[in-house]
Design a protein around this nucleic acid. Sequence first.
DNA 1: TCCAAACCTGAAGAATAGTTCATATTTAGT
DNA 2: ACTAAATATGAACTATTCTTCAGGTTTGGA
Lengths: 223, 223
Amino acid sequence: MTRPTPLALKPRKSPSQARSTATVEAIHTATIQLLLTDGVARLTTTRVAERAGVSVGTMYQYYPHKEALLFALVTAQLEAIAAAMENAAADLTGRSLCAISDGIAAAWLDAKTADIVGSRAIYGIAAEFDIVEMTRERSVQMIDAIETLLTTASDAVVARPREVAFMLLAVMGGSVRTVLERGARDEELEVLRAELPLVCRQYLAVSAHPLAARSDAEELTRV
Amino acid sequence: MTRPTPLALKPRKSPSQARSTATVEAIHTATIQLLLTDGVARLTTTRVAERAGVSVGTMYQYYPHKEALLFALVTAQLEAIAAAMENAAADLTGRSLCAISDGIAAAWLDAKTADIVGSRAIYGIAAEFDIVEMTRERSVQMIDAIETLLTTASDAVVARPREVAFMLLAVMGGSVRTVLERGARDEELEVLRAELPLVCRQYLAVSAHPLAARSDAEELTRV
DNA sequence: TCCAAACCTGAAGAATAGTTCATATTTAGT
DNA sequence: ACTAAATATGAACTATTCTTCAGGTTTGGA
């Protein structure tokens, strides 16, 4: 999704006083609410302002246009996720492969689940314009973190850590997205929470050679 | 993403002559092209008609509005995928768990990859309006197929086949989507093709008890 | 050959969206 | 209390967008 005119997506100015901070906050939550109830197609600057209880002009004081607003929203969301994952990676350094696997899966689920409403809203616009670009950047950052984390596993050495890290993120990201986008039903979230760690563990298990002598035969060997 | 007015999403009429069939086809591919290059936000009836080399009025002869056009596109896409998966399920009935796993993963990858352009375009609008609803229906249909398929495995009995089928689809669907949405790069597709079958196999392995006596110890047991 | 049905056209109208800016109000510091 | 900077307002302007429809062209079969 490339835009003809890449146009500046940066905010116009940042709120400095208490009042304006609240205003921007209101605009953000209004956007998310509208996104969730009516979808992107119905999201208009007028409606956002109305819902936020401010005037249209106010929005334009902080964002040069609608896209910039959406961009800011997605950026914040992704930065939070990336930060959470990097923290998790730091905490898990040097642990066993199982611990690492469980830790990553849990961290991902927690991060995405912490703000379900926000996450769901974001999915709807993630496919638009330059957002894909930014998503990719953040993604690379997380792949890096997980790749190096994998190499620190205390009890095993992961064969192709970068590919495995990539795949892990694709699987976690994709499956969670699937569930959230369908409506984030409790039963489905339950299944996800139970099964996703399993999927990750098993996948990591085949992708690694045990370091200390261990008798567990790998059920399935790499082709 | 619920719409205030659910409005009729069905096509207005179907082409009966050769000329009109070509026209509708042209409209479809034009839509997909525009979706891919400019994104949903820039997709307008005028542009679609222009790109398709027909008049705007022509489009309105077959679809009551833009949404109906998009809906038709997604429907076709999903039906193709669902059919492919049901075929695969039929072929794999009674095979070993490994064969089933590999077969499903391959079928999914093939189905999504057969028309990469179409798949990618669809992702961009999958989050909109009642499309989520339809996606869910098709999804249930596929879960059913895979669930019953799993119960036919010749060499193992899958513990909670429905949950496993659900998870399998979430993982496959999500990871493929992730890769395609990022631009469907060759290197990333390669990784996906190599790793996804592994992920599925391993996951199925822990989710099942071997039927005939087999000595392979399960590395990781269920909690 | 001829006609009715199918199909196509594109200018035009109504509706809506994005954005600006001159003016009014509030805040923080002196 | 006073003032400059920060913030908010919303009517108004422009640009698009969707959609229709009255009138033309093409098609398939009698």
